[in-house]
Design a protein around this nucleic acid. Structure first.
Lengths: 151, 151
DNA sequence: CCAAGGTTGGTGACGCGTCAACTAGCGCGG
DNA sequence: CCGCGCTAGTTGACGCGTCACCAACCTTGG
């Protein structure tokens, strides 16, 4: 017996899908136009700069991003070609390798970040009350918890 | 002067990004495993079944989906190869063409929809209070409005 | 010390999405 | 009726993400 969505749920769901699609497209375009980075490049660089250490193991980075290793491998190969990241051999484990942020990578993300954050402010947080921000956090936490529990 | 995200905003934003990524991945996998459809195939078929008319112009469909024409063209070519949709010439306008849902397309989506909707219920709406559903709608409406205004 | 099994990361093929041309047909001013 | 601009949809190239598979290497039990 299927539980179809009722009218309120349907509205919320379609709104969510539309919002994500359009917001993502907009942020992507702006970031790309301003710096040549994609949103995924940005994620990678943010994780690398978050780190206290300048080098990071691939597996560790993959876990932080919640990406498959293969995806990360492909993506880093492309970013390496553009000079944004580099690779170093891993001393203790000859299978592994370190990812490092290049000077150029650091420069590019530092230049790109302000405008990107400003866009997020403008399109999202400027539109929301404090209560709505909290509600959004509650919603995402709850759904993430459920996804996690369902394994 | 950049307005960086404060701690609450940062939490909400990272949560939102993580939720979308994981929810999408999960729904995609389940739909794919159950029916061979991707989420985008599903969207296309939903729009086609929403319609009172069995045929729909490409441009009209593109607008409903908010897709670029080129994307729709590529995607329909692939769906056509799999027998989910067909194309018909357009009588009044020799440039245009109609997209039609095939019998197989109808069959596949009718079989796929219940499990997909059930997943959405399980992961999302079962986790949310009525107030949160309303908050989600308010948030998406507001952000969509802003995106629209910023054109 | 060695074999078995797990782990780390990479590869190739394929479907997808975007951008920038492009083709073909419509329609309007002259 | 011609020509020019507009619109409908297509195509090709390229970057991206996934899947299936692989090679190299570590680790552990014997």
């Amino acid at each position: 017996m299927t539980r179809w969505l009722d009218e309120r749920e349907r509205r919320a769901w379609r709104g969510y899908l539309a919002m994500h699609a359009q917001l993502n497209a907009r942020l992507h375009r702006q970031l790309q136009a301003g710096s040549g980075l994609s949103l995924t490049d940005f994620d990678v660089l943010v994780r690398l700069t978050d780190q206290p250490e300048p080098r990071m193991r691939m597996g560790e980075l993959a876990k932080a991003l919640q990406w498959e290793k293969s995806r990360l491998s492909h993506h880093l190969a492309r970013m390496e070609k553009r000079g944004l990241v580099g690779r170093e051999e891993c001393a203790g484990d000859a299978r592994g390798s370190y990812v490092v942020l290049t000077a150029r990578g650091r420069e590019v993300i530092e230049q790109a970040a302000p405008a990107h954050v400003e866009s997020v402010q403008e399109y999202v947080f400027d539109q929301l009350s404090d209560e709505e921000v909290d509600a959004l956090t509650a919603i995402t936490d709850r759904v993430l918890q459920r996804l996690h529990d369902a394994g």
